[in-house]
Amino acid sequence: MRVSHDIEITPKSVVLDGKQIEVSETGERLLVELYRRYVGDYPKFYKMDTLSRLGFIAAEILLKIEPVEAVILGNHNASIKNDRDYLKTITDGNYYPSPALFVYTLPNIVTGEIAIRHHIQGETSFYVLDKQEDLEPIIHATLNNVPSPILGGWCECSDKDEFNAKLQIIWNN
């Protein structure tokens, strides 16, 4: 297992291959700032939930360096932030279930968004785990079975301004 590039995005910082990237915004607005800087012409971004925006933008920055064959992500809270947003559309006395929100009530949608953007027709998988380190054996076992490199790592969002992505481009050797 070998990591060729990695990115970490928190509500306050972006670190690519160990180097801090200058940003002015924080939280959810940081993701929009990164979208404007690195993409700008993919309006579907604005339809995405925060988890998908986070994974999408982290992937965007990494995959500009190197394309991948598969996307294997994990987190602890699944799609909880967007699940709560969807719940607000089905409260008693205010029942207007939103299909636009419901579609994001699965954490693997972020892997689908990345696959669509980068035309990745290899494997996409999402795991919900107790700890970040629990993803390592799964990625190790996956690399024995799918072509590399893969985009792998942690993609977590528990609220609109509480998130953490730690994504890597990982090779089998």
Binding site: A78, P107, N108, S125, L129, K131, P137, I138, A141, T142
Partner: peptide
């Protein structure tokens, strides 16, 4: 051991068995 939840939408039940196969065949 830490349990694993496979959350791959409607395919999860087949993906979970693929995950089992990989983890077992990798000797983990």
């Amino acid at each position: 051991n830490s349990p694993i939840v496979v959350s791959n939408a409607c395919t999860s039940g087949v993906c979970a068995q693929i995950t089992a196969k990989r983890l077992i065949e990798s000797g983990l």
